[in-house]
C-alpha cells in the first residue's frame, strides 16, 4: 500500500466491561482516500470508528490499550484534549441527526461553539460548507427553515456540511447512507468522491457494493478483529482469507 498515512493504529484493544470488542487491531489509514470498514453486525466497526475520535469515552466501563497515532501523537493518551481532537476528526452518524434548529444554525453551530460570532464570516463558512456537501443549491433559499423539514438524504448532507464547517482533516462516517433511498445514497457516494480530494475518509458500510464503489482500501472486521485489510479491488476480487471470501460471497453474515 502506497501513499501518505494519516492515522496509524497499533495493537488496539478495547473492552466494554469484560467484553472485548476490539482485538489487536493494526491498520494504517491512508491520507486523502476513502477507507471502508465492512463486516457482519456487532463485529466492532462502530466501536472502532468511534475510537478514532474518542467517542467511546461517552460509554460507561470502557477500557482500551494500544496506540492510535495521528499527527505524531497517540490520541488514546489520557491527556489528549478530546474537544480539540474532535475538531480535527469529525463524525457523521448512521441516522441523520440535525439539531432542531434552522439549516443555517446547524451549519453555523460548529464555528459558533468555537468562538466565531461575526455574521458575515458565519455566512461565508455556511455557504462554503453547504456547497462542499453538495446541498447548497437545494437549501440556499430556505436557510432559516428548520433542518428537520429536509428529507433524510438532505439531512445527511446537511450533517456533512455541518462537519465541514469546522474544517476537520478526517471524516468518520458510520453507515451514513443506510437509512437513505438509492438516489440519496448515490448523491452521498458522489460526494465522497469529491470529498476525498481534501479529506481522509473512513466509512463503515453494510453494503459491500457501496464499499467497492467508494473506497480504495477495505478492512474486513470479524468478531472484533480485522481479518483482512487490502486494497478494495483485491479484497473483493481475490480475498486472501477464507472468512473474507465467505463473507463477500455471501456465504455467511
Amino acid at each position: 500500500m502506497s501513499g501518505e498515512i494519516e492515522i496509524s493504529i497499533k495493537n488496539l484493544n478495547l473492552w466494554f466491561g469484560n467484553f472485548q470488542a476490539l482485538k489487536n487491531i493494526n491498520i494504517e489509514i491512508q491520507k486523502n482516500a476513502v477507507t471502508a470498514l465492512i463486516g457482519p453486525s456487532g463485529c466492532g466497526k462502530s466501536t472502532f470508528i468511534k475510537t478514532l475520535d474518542r467517542m467511546n469515552d461517552l460509554v460507561d466501563n470502557v477500557k482500551f490499550t494500544g496506540e492510535v497515532i495521528y499527527k505524531g501523537r497517540n490520541i488514546l493518551d489520557s491527556d489528549t484534549d478530546v474537544v480539540e481532537l474532535r475538531k480535527e476528526i469529525g463524525m457523521v452518524f448512521q441516522k441523520p441527526n440535525p439539531f432542531p434548529k434552522s439549516i443555517f444554525d446547524n451549519v453555523a453551530y460548529g464555528p459558533r461553539v468555537h468562538g466565531i460570532r461575526d455574521k458575515k464570516t458565519l455566512h461565508e463558512i455556511a455557504e462554503r460548507s453547504l456547497k462542499g456537501a453538495a446541498i447548497w443549491d437545494e437549501v440556499k433559499d430556505r436557510l432559516n427553515e428548520s433542518a428537520l423539514r429536509l428529507s433524510g438524504g438532505q439531512q445527511q448532507r446537511l450533517c456533512i456540511a455541518r462537519l465541514l464547517a469546522v474544517e476537520p482533516d478526517v471524516l468518520l462516517m458510520d453507515e451514513p447512507a443506510s437509512a437513505l433511498d438509492p438516489i440519496a445514497t448515490s448523491k452521498i457516494e458522489d460526494l465522497l468522491h469529491e470529498l476525498k480530494k481534501d479529506y481522509t475518509i473512513v466509512i463503515v458500510t453494510h453494503n459491500m457494493q457501496q464499499a467497492a464503489r467508494v473506497s480504495s482500501h477495505t478492512a474486513f472486521f470479524w468478531l472484533g478483529e480485522i481479518v483482512e485489510y487490502a486494497s478494495t479491488i483485491d479484497l473483493f476480487e481475490r480475498p486472501r482469507n477464507k472468512r473474507t471470501e465467505d463473507y463477500v460471497t455471501g456465504k455467511f453474515g
Partner: peptide, 9 residues
Amino acid sequence: EQPMAKDLR
C-alpha cells in the same frame, strides 16, 4: 447477484 471474490472470478 453482484458476485464477489471467487464467484466473481
